Amino acid sequence: MSVTALDRSVALPADVDQPAPRGGAVDLVEVGRAFSGTGGRRDVLRDLTVQIRAGEILAVVGPSGCGKSTLLRVIGGLDRPTAGAVTVAGQPVVDTDARTAIAFQEPRLLPWRTLAQNVELGLPQGTGRRAGRARVAELLELVGLTASADLNPRQVSGGMAQRASLARALARGPEVLLLDEPFGALDALTRLRMQDLLLQVHAVEPTTVVLVTHDVEEALFLADRVLLLRTLTPEDGSSSVARILTAPGERPRDRAEAAFADLRADLLTGLGVDTHHASPL
């Protein structure tokens, strides 16, 4: 089943079976990551223990410098923890782990290649030419870029380029999709549309997703759970995990729902922002 329209409902039709999660469960056990510099050792992550269910969308929020991007790099095998263990589907994460794929805030497309050719770069090594063409076409249709397949990145909008970046990450067939502020550089309207698109894609290809974002509303709208990280200080010895919240209701969620607004205020308070929000009696 394919989804091409950005404004289409993210729910699959009632007569279509919901696809089983094909993502891998991620287990982080007492994970720590420290860096050494002229000022001595600095802990960025400490004693972080989280279990991410297969097919779950987990959003990660927290103040700048709390280790959100570092956590993604550790899960993806792009960085090694200095303490603890990380597994995907029960197996240890290795360097540049092929079971994971990452998409960044910038699309990072090669400007001399078409969108289709950029997506093709994400295919697993050894993919046959015919199978590769079919998979690229399937992914371009999924993200609504079939008509733009032969355009270069400079010929498309930022939102279209980010859709191509998402398709390239999915081309790998990852068990875990890591998204580092993927919509942060987009305008407000395009960002909302991309949020809907991500849910549409996840409904069709239900991989495990770990999403780093500074947008609390985005986290609650997209995720099953939200992991709030804290900035570490040398004095307190606390875990990086400040809280883990379960998002209310089923997707797609109503941003105006009272429970949604209350959790949004709760998360912002955890980030040190005074929301002046009063819950209804």
Rank of each mutant, 00 (worst) to 15 (best):
D47G: 03
G65D: 07
T207C: 11
G84R: 08
V26C: 05
G144V: 02
G77K: 07
D95K: 11
A11D: 10
V86K: 03
T208E: 09
L178W: 02
A203Y: 04
D15L: 09
S165T: 11
G126A: 09
L220I: 15
T231I: 04
G55Q: 04
T231M: 09
A185S: 15
E257R: 12
E205D: 12
E138F: 01
D215G: 01
F221Q: 03
A103T: 15
R191L: 10
D7E: 14
S165K: 02
P107E: 01
A247G: 01
H276R: 13
V156I: 14
Q162H: 11
I244E: 05
A131R: 14
L12R: 11
T100V: 07
S9M: 00
H202C: 02
I75G: 08
A83N: 08
W112G: 03
F260M: 14
V93P: 03
G173F: 06
I102W: 00
A134G: 00
L220A: 06
D17W: 00
Q125M: 13
L222V: 08
R8S: 14
A83Y: 01
D150A: 14
H277Y: 15
P107C: 01
I244A: 01
G40S: 06
D180P: 08
D262P: 00
R168W: 11
L145E: 06
A242P: 00
L228E: 08
M1Y: 08
G126D: 10
G37M: 12
V31R: 03
D150K: 12
V3G: 13
A164Q: 02
L271P: 01
L145P: 12
T96Y: 12
T82R: 04
R22N: 14
V74M: 15
R172N: 15
P124T: 02
D266N: 00
L198T: 09
R73N: 15
E235Q: 12
C66K: 02
A103Q: 04
G84A: 12
A223T: 10
L115W: 02
V209W: 07
T114V: 05
E250W: 00
M194N: 04
E141Q: 13
R41N: 05
R193F: 00
T38L: 13
R46N: 09
